[in-house]
Simulated assay, not measured.
Amino acid sequence: MAVYTEVSLDEASTFLSSLQLGTLQTMEGCSGGIENTNYFVTTDQAPYVLTLFERLTAQQLPFYLRLMKHLAFHGIPVPDPAANRDGDVLHSLNGKPAAVVNRLKGKSELSPGVEHCRQVGAMLARMHLAGREFGMQQPNLRALPWWNETVPVVLPHLEAPQAALIQSELAYQNHVAAQSAYAALPRGAIHADLFRDNVMFETLDGEPRLSGFFDFYFAGTDTWLFDLAVCLNDWCIDLPTGRADLERSRAFVQAYESVRPLTAQERELLPAMLRAGALRFWLSRLWDWYLPREASMLKPHDPTHFERVLQQRIAHPLTLDTLMNPETQTA
């Protein structure tokens, strides 16, 4: 993530020692992303990730950290937050809420193939099912209410065709959310941001093996279908055009359904949720592009990418019938 809050070696060393995580050996700021301050730290015990939270409050954070603890306990490969002597997983450093998690093995696969998508799809379903027993609730903070608040803020920065598209899609998503089929969608804890760079793979005997999901700080309670749609919009598209790759999409959904079959309402609303996922990330990228914050390593993402994805999802709706038809060729 971008570095907003500077942490010295001495400060980090004292902090890690207080959590009984060993003696600090190396520390490096992480430049990916734009939400929090992250440092890769290594002690004489293990490698960790030290996070200082820039937007999320101390009241919001227990949901994310406890969710990771819960999923790790149930065998989902996620970062496991370090607790202090009192069992607390939320800490404070340099006036900011902070946490330390173990650093996952492997690396992100930014050009995924069918096998990568298959493994992520199956693990996503396992994660959803494991989350059913998680007792805490917190809304997805980047869901429809945030879209309704934020569209008027970014509109002055858009050209007329973009403004018309984003307003039209927002109206459509409000219409979908009012339907009985939407109310019937299965819900629970979701990741909400499971892009290619938030998953790790190791290579074993020449084959990829999923080694972890991470960056749960957009997680919330929402529909599982939205989580699936967010993944399909990143893992299973052609990046330059935003077009769906049907082979990867089919592998992803089939693997997901091998663990948790979709309901009739989910099958009906998949095209709408794919549009919703595209709108959410187009809007957040517009927000970060036009209303950026100061940071020493800030790298906002290009918002036009998800504008293209949304246009593709509107022009070429992706249905379960399309995905499950083996005769359908890759788009």
Results as ranks from 00 to 15, higher is better:
residue 292 P to R: 14
residue 254 Q to H: 15
residue 37 T to C: 10
residue 130 A to F: 05
residue 84 N to Q: 09
residue 47 P to E: 02
residue 285 R to G: 03
residue 240 P to V: 06
residue 254 Q to M: 13
residue 245 D to S: 13
residue 92 S to L: 12
residue 313 R to N: 12
residue 286 L to D: 07
residue 95 G to R: 05
residue 95 G to Y: 02
residue 104 L to Q: 04
residue 286 L to I: 13
residue 39 Y to G: 00
residue 22 G to H: 01
residue 69 K to V: 08
residue 177 A to I: 08
residue 31 S to H: 06
residue 282 W to M: 14
residue 298 L to W: 07
residue 294 E to P: 15
residue 284 S to G: 11
residue 48 Y to N: 03
residue 259 V to S: 01
residue 123 M to L: 13
residue 315 A to N: 15
residue 40 F to K: 00
residue 174 N to P: 10
residue 152 P to Q: 12
residue 247 E to V: 15
residue 204 L to K: 08
residue 166 I to E: 10
residue 108 S to F: 01
residue 240 P to I: 05
residue 302 D to N: 15
residue 264 A to N: 05
residue 113 G to L: 14
residue 250 R to M: 05
residue 259 V to Q: 06
residue 229 A to K: 02
residue 43 T to W: 00
residue 44 D to I: 08
residue 273 M to C: 10
residue 238 D to P: 05
residue 276 A to K: 04
residue 47 P to T: 06
residue 193 D to C: 08
residue 78 V to P: 00
residue 142 R to L: 09
residue 171 A to F: 01
residue 225 L to K: 10
residue 27 M to P: 03
residue 290 Y to D: 07
residue 140 N to L: 09
residue 71 L to S: 15
residue 180 S to K: 15
residue 168 S to C: 10
residue 24 L to D: 00
residue 212 G to R: 12
residue 52 L to S: 07
residue 84 N to I: 04
residue 113 G to K: 14
residue 64 Y to N: 14
residue 28 E to V: 12
residue 244 A to H: 03
residue 10 D to W: 02
residue 262 L to I: 05
residue 183 A to L: 03
residue 3 V to Q: 03
residue 90 L to W: 15
residue 256 Y to A: 06
residue 51 T to L: 11
residue 46 A to S: 11
residue 98 A to N: 10
residue 246 L to E: 13
residue 273 M to D: 05
residue 206 G to D: 06
residue 182 Y to H: 15
residue 224 W to G: 07
residue 303 P to Y: 12
residue 325 N to I: 03
residue 240 P to Q: 04
residue 36 N to A: 12
residue 117 C to V: 11
residue 8 S to R: 11
residue 224 W to R: 06
residue 218 F to A: 13
residue 100 V to L: 02
residue 307 E to P: 11
residue 154 V to Y: 11
residue 148 N to A: 15
residue 134 F to R: 05
residue 184 A to T: 14
residue 184 A to Y: 01
residue 305 H to R: 11
residue 259 V to F: 15
residue 285 R to A: 11
residue 234 D to A: 07
residue 275 R to G: 13
residue 196 R to T: 08
residue 21 L to Q: 05
residue 68 M to S: 13
residue 26 T to C: 00
residue 89 V to C: 10
residue 151 V to H: 03
residue 63 F to W: 07
residue 55 R to I: 01
residue 57 T to Y: 09
residue 106 G to N: 06
residue 25 Q to K: 13
residue 144 L to Q: 02
residue 147 W to Q: 12
residue 255 A to P: 07
residue 151 V to F: 02
residue 54 E to V: 05
residue 318 L to P: 01
residue 88 D to T: 08
residue 34 I to H: 04
residue 22 G to C: 04
residue 192 A to W: 00
residue 129 L to S: 13
residue 25 Q to F: 02
residue 244 A to E: 05
residue 160 A to T: 12
residue 223 T to P: 12
residue 145 P to Q: 06
residue 178 A to V: 02
residue 314 I to S: 03
residue 243 R to W: 09
residue 311 Q to E: 06
residue 216 F to C: 05
residue 140 N to C: 10
residue 17 S to W: 00
residue 254 Q to R: 15
residue 68 M to C: 15
residue 85 R to E: 14
residue 120 V to I: 07
residue 95 G to T: 14
residue 139 P to G: 09
residue 90 L to E: 12
residue 224 W to I: 05
residue 215 D to H: 07
residue 62 P to R: 06
residue 146 W to L: 09
